Simulated assay, not measured.
Amino acid sequence: MTVATRIPPEAEAVPRTLRVAFAGGNGLPPEDSGGVQSSTDDLARRLLARGDAPAVLAPLYGQGVFGLRARARLKLAREPFAEDRHLGYPAFRTWFPAEAVGVFAHRTRPDVAVVQCRGSVPIARAFRAAGVPVVLYLRNVEFTELDGDPSRAGAAAYIANSRFTAATYREAFGIEAHVIPPTVDPSRFAVETDGSAVLFINPVAEKGLDRALSIAAACPEIPFLFVESWVLSPAARAALLRRIAPLPNVAFERRKADVRDAFRRARFLLAPGVWREAWGRVASEAQCSGLPVIGSDRGGLPEAIGPGGVVLSAEAPLADWVAEVRRLWSDPASHAALSAAARAHAARPEMDPDRQFATFRAILAQAAG
């Protein structure tokens, strides 16, 4: 297995320009947001800065002002997608990405396609049928989302976003993947913090909403800030606000265009996830500002937290979580030590964005031939 800190020799000199397609079944901003979108956007922008030509094929949801306008453009288009440059590079939005691959590949003529997340297997096969080499980016361990066996997708190479993800796919499918953690550029996330609240980002069930609410209820003297990440439906948001209402120490805010606004007010990050998350990008982002993380032992989250926080069993008694929250809130020495460890963990070589990108692009260039 190749890890991000061991750059392949070909990464040192890959002279030619690459046309790179990103494709998958996850939406793009402003219709969708999350770790996948943030990581893809960072890679696309780095490719642009190097002189390469990225383009993204993604599903259209058709909701909101942006989505309705895209739907209108799609109706008038002679192709199965609506093109825009909302993100600063070409994005092609379509109802069914796998069915649009052939036309998309003919239009953009990519040297290599990076296929990821929902619908990966049929999308990868469609690119192979169009004569485009594929690198399959394994970003989660929800196998059913892939719509097939990834070992039979015809990929030239595989990238996993954590050792946990790589090990899971190796055990299930015999796949050997390069490991490149999500790119988190400290210059985009590091801020001075005032330590005025415990921060919980993405208040949904998978991220440990029940546990977070229980902790907040048990610590009425500590202010908590819950911030939306995955866009909540009006019904889901109303249900959340009803649950928060009896807790005067909990504030809720809608999704931030710039997450640093939330980080500025945090003393540490709470991440009590209950699903097998492949990494835990928000933990890495928070640590850039010296914010320790109290998180669960599920999936790749412990890798993301490392020594820069506290890892507890997802099944640990509530009292254990409350004790750690109160310790980090009220013990300056403990907080200072973990804050320093968080900064150091965020700055480790494996997380260096330039090294990660060099490895990523070398893998693409090798796959492109």
Rank of each mutant, 00 (worst) to 15 (best):
V3S: 14
A4R: 04
I7P: 00
A11W: 07
A11R: 03
R19Y: 05
S33K: 09
S33M: 13
G34L: 04
S38H: 06
T40W: 03
D41Y: 04
R45P: 01
R50L: 14
P54M: 06
V56Y: 06
L68E: 15
R69S: 03
R71Y: 03
R73S: 11
E79R: 12
A82H: 06
E83P: 01
G88D: 11
P90Q: 12
A91W: 02
A100K: 03
V103M: 02
A105S: 03
A105N: 06
A105E: 08
H106V: 07
R107L: 14
T108G: 01
R109Y: 08
V112L: 05
V114P: 00
V114H: 01
Q116H: 06
Q116M: 13
C117S: 15
G119H: 04
V121F: 09
R125P: 05
A126M: 03
A129N: 08
A130S: 09
Y137D: 07
F143E: 13
T144M: 13
D147F: 07
D147C: 08
G148H: 08
P150M: 08
P150S: 10
S151F: 11
S162H: 11
F164M: 13
Y169P: 09
Y169K: 07
E171F: 12
A172Y: 06
E176Q: 14
V179S: 03
T183E: 02
V184Y: 03
D185Y: 06
F189D: 01
F189C: 06
A197V: 12
V198T: 05
L199A: 11
E206C: 12
K207V: 10
G208Y: 10
R211H: 07
A212M: 11
A217H: 10
P220Q: 10
F224M: 01
F226S: 04
W230P: 06
V231S: 14
A235T: 10
A235K: 13
L247T: 03
R254V: 15
R255S: 10
R264N: 08
L270K: 04
A271V: 09
R276Q: 15
E277L: 03
R281T: 14
A283I: 01
S289V: 11
I305P: 01
V310Q: 08
S313W: 05
S313N: 10
A319Q: 15
V325I: 09
D331E: 15
A333D: 15
S334V: 02
S334Q: 14
H335C: 12
A342K: 02
A342Q: 07
M351K: 08
P353D: 01
D354Y: 00
A358N: 00
T359M: 09
F360R: 02
I363E: 03
Q366W: 08
A368R: 07
